[in-house]
């Protein structure tokens, strides 16, 4: 406070100008950086709605002269994008639901019940979460073939429910450990069973955390690449990121089709970002241990 007041008292017009110039320089710098960061999104968008002829004549930097959606439609039909969206949705939603449920059960035992050896269980869950998927990939691939669930979404759902719930357990347990210990004793005295304690007291109180976990599990699962690629071989079973990435390697696509495919890959994530923005910004710090 003292410093700003004395600066104002001097009232040097040149100083003021310098402060103004500083603001302009800062804004210009930040905006240039923003353009660089957003450039890939913009360039993909403007080229996905261009016709191939337009791209050939005017190059990638010109603004589209109209909206040409035929490229997008052709690509959509060629890869049966509806099918990829359904696959991704089914896998991500199922994993999010079962992942949250499993995390809740685990954390209930570890955080509220404080079962013996809980610290070791927690270490195991955290390890499971940081383990590289490469060290599970071949055995999981082998087991999946053995049990006849290779190339089926069940395999991916099972694996990611467990991987995501390992993180969820770790996070929820630390939330539950902060609950007053009297809660379960009071509930027991009132003749509440443990299942009632979980469903009627613990779950409603922790709903905000559970919904953050749900959104995170959904998006993380949607974005996964390595294990889904190992476990799902036929294109009709694949998820959106997987199908688009694998297709790109296989076909020699022209520029506009390529950008159409990139746009279709981007769009769902932008939709999620807009839908879940608040939850996401709340949860990024919580998710930082992943």
């Amino acid at each position: 406070m003292i410093r700003t007041r004395s600066a104002n008292l001097q009232g040097n017009p040149l100083r003021l100008d310098r402060a103004q110039v500083g603001k302009v320089v800062a804004l210009v710098g930040l905006t240039v950086l923003l353009i660089v960061m957003l450039f890939p999104f913009l360039i993909v968008f403007i080229n996905a709605i261009k016709s191939p002829a337009e791209y050939a004549n005017n190059g990638p930097m010109s603004l589209p002269q109209g909206i040409y959606v035929q490229g997008l439609i052709d690509f959509w039909n060629r890869v049966d994008f509806t099918n990829k969206l359904i696959n991704s949705l089914v896998i991500s939603l199922t994993v999010a639901i079962f992942g949250v449920a499993l995390s809740l059960f685990n954390a209930f035992a570890l955080g509220i019940g404080r079962v013996r050896g809980r610290v070791w269980f927690l270490v195991f869950f955290l390890m499971a979460n940081t383990l590289p998927q490469e060290s599970l990939a071949y055995p999981l691939y082998y087991f999946a073939k053995f049990f006849g669930i290779y190339n089926s979404q069940i395999a991916v759902i099972l694996v990611f429910t467990v991987i995501q719930s390992a993180f969820g357990t770790y996070l929820l347990t630390s939330v539950f450990s902060a609950f007053p210990r009297e809660i379960n004793e009071a509930a027991m005295i009132d003749g509440c069973t443990k299942l009632q304690l979980l469903l009627r007291i613990v779950m409603p109180i922790s709903m905000p955390t559970l919904s953050v976990l749900f959104v995170f599990f959904f998006i993380w699962t949607w974005n996964e690449f390595f294990l889904p690629m190992v476990l799902l071989v036929s294109t009709s079973k694949q998820t959106v990121p997987l199908a688009i990435a694998v297709l790109q390697g296989q076909h020699n696509m022209d520029a506009t089709t390529s950008s159409a495919s990139a746009l279709l890959g981007l769009l769902p994530c932008l939709v999620f970002f807009v839908l879940f923005q608040r939850t996401l910004t709340k949860g990024i710090t919580a998710g930082s241990i992943k």
Partner: peptide, 14 residues
Amino acid sequence: ILPVAIAGVVWRWI
């Protein structure tokens, strides 16, 4: 917010 695979597709195109 992008899946890394999609970010890769975008940059390979660029």
